[in-house]
Amino acid sequence: MDASEQPTRKVLTFISRHVPYGQGWAKASLDMVLSAAVFDQQVNYVFMDDGVQQLRRGQEPAAINARNLSAAFSALPLYDVSNIFVDADSLQRRGLTQDQLLIDTILCDTDKIAELIRHSDVVFNL
């Protein structure tokens, strides 16, 4: 393929499935999303499993000297990241509802996540 034929935009789906503190996956995922958005890629950001805990309102990670990701999540619209999906089953199993989340999200089922994967060029799952 000639360099001039390279696509400049791909569909990248990021699935974030881990708790916000201790492991670093939440931040690792968020940084990937922001980079992809800065480079003008079409981004889907999906929270499932323990990943939904990242969006719980009222977190005060300063109490454990951890970095607060809330501000960065709130800034996602500034990066034109609006396809933010939350797996309804994961929320429900953790006793959470959408109005307890700190940003606007699209509530979805796993069929929708399967569809997002099928229509992605690349999926990052961390």
Binding site: R9, S35, A36, F39, Q41, D121
Partner: peptide, 8 residues
């Protein structure tokens, strides 16, 4: 950015 480039 190098990862985004690689995906492209």
């Amino acid at each position: 950015g190098q990862l985004v480039d690689a995906t492209l």
